[in-house]
Amino acid sequence: MTSKTLFEPYALGPLTLSNRIVMAPLTRNRAGAGFVPGELTAEYYAQRASAGLIISEATQISQQGQGYQDTPGIYSQQQIDGWRKVTDAVHAKGGHIFLQLWHVGRVSHIDLQPDGKAPVAPSAIRAETKTFVNNGFVDVSEPRALELDEIPGIIEDFRRAAANAIDAGFDGVEVHGANGYLLDQFAKDGANTRTDPYGGSIENRARLMLEVTAAVVEEVGAERTGIRISPVSPANGVSSSDPQGQFDYIVKKLDEMGIAYLHVVEGATGGPRDVAPFDFEGLRRKFKNTYIANNGYDLDLAATRHEQGLADLFAFGKPFIANPDLIERLKTGAPLASFDPSTLFGGGAAGYTDYPATAASA
């Protein structure tokens, strides 16, 4: 099975990507004061600019949207200015980068919320998961259900964040609709027991994800908008009684919007691809634009799935951590370095910008 075509250019809307390998979003918890990305972050992403497309670490659209310590935001001028240094550095290396827009919903802690208030969620159901706060992992806090009249404000926060991302120089934005965060919580009935227009039926539970995406499209254009979904992932304690029906409907509606790409976590996030029955091939057929496949991909699997027409681009996550020159290593068959788990979350340059390139790509 040849992987040659994975390293050929690819047209993503108005962008020409240098290859079909995407750097997936990776939370690293290294934002500075005011949740502003700093010089190290610019260096980190610039080191990895040979990816066909970089999707940034998840970035909160508001303080309410934050769920973990020291993650960056995109709601203040200082944050916009910090991200501008990142995008300038990536573009100077010939790369392309989208910003992932994030609201964690119930996956948060009162110590991170405005005035120590409870995190918000579709329903007052506590997530069976932990978050990283005060330099350690702790249980998330009990959430409260969003009032119906608060939801337009959430949509507006996403819209404003998308505009801010373009002001910061990003090539586009990715709506985070996956991994048990707010939009995924609304979509899945294990977390959403509402009886108003945002709960109950498949159509109602999809409403917030679709309204947010439509607002982002209206603000920055469909060609600069992508979305990430995880139909069957149990990440952060979410579950759905009918994931196939739910996400067939969502993807049909997303396709009608003409957005640039659909980024799909196939299986359990960072876990088994076969965690639950789901027709991902059928999902891919429902979306006419770019399909980014994610979860457990290596070069051989990506080449096989590409030849079968099952995806256009392939997202690699953890391999990018310790391999800033991952593209060159994949091309040449050079061995991949392993990352140090103790430096994943928080800290400085160690385990962040100090992983070396191979001699061949240095």
Rank of each mutant, 00 (worst) to 15 (best):
M1K: 15
S3P: 00
L6F: 11
G13I: 05
L15S: 09
L15E: 13
T16Y: 05
M23F: 10
T27I: 11
T27G: 13
R28L: 13
A33P: 11
F35G: 04
P37K: 01
G38A: 10
A42Q: 07
Y45E: 00
R48K: 10
S56G: 14
I61M: 05
Q64E: 14
D70M: 11
D70N: 15
T71Q: 12
P72L: 03
Q77S: 15
H91E: 06
K93M: 02
K93A: 10
G95I: 04
I97R: 03
I97C: 03
F98M: 04
L99R: 00
L99P: 00
V104G: 01
G105W: 13
H109E: 02
I110E: 04
D115E: 15
A118C: 02
P119K: 02
P119R: 02
T131M: 05
N135F: 09
G136E: 03
G136C: 01
F137E: 01
F137N: 05
E142Q: 14
E147T: 12
E147K: 15
D149M: 06
P152V: 05
A163G: 12
A163H: 13
A163K: 14
D167W: 12
A168W: 10
F170E: 00
D171M: 01
E174Y: 06
L182F: 12
Q185S: 04
D189L: 04
G190W: 08
T195W: 03
S201W: 09
I202L: 14
A206E: 13
L208A: 04
V212F: 04
A215V: 05
E218W: 11
E219F: 05
V220S: 03
V220R: 03
R224I: 03
G226T: 06
I227H: 02
I229H: 01
S233C: 06
P234W: 11
G237A: 11
S240M: 07
D242P: 13
Y249K: 07
K252S: 15
D255M: 01
G258K: 10
Y261D: 03
L262S: 08
E266D: 04
A268K: 08
T269F: 14
G270Q: 07
V275S: 14
P277L: 06
E281T: 11
G282A: 09
R285G: 03
T290A: 15
N295W: 09
G296N: 10
L299Y: 12
D300S: 09
D300C: 01
A302M: 07
Q308D: 11
G309P: 09
A311D: 06
I321M: 12
A322D: 02
A322W: 14
N323P: 00
L326C: 11
I327W: 03
E328R: 08
R329A: 12
L330K: 03
L330Q: 02
G333R: 14
A334M: 04
S338N: 14
P341W: 12
L344Y: 14
G347L: 12
A349G: 14
A350M: 08
A350Y: 13
T358V: 10
S361L: 01
S361E: 05
A362M: 04
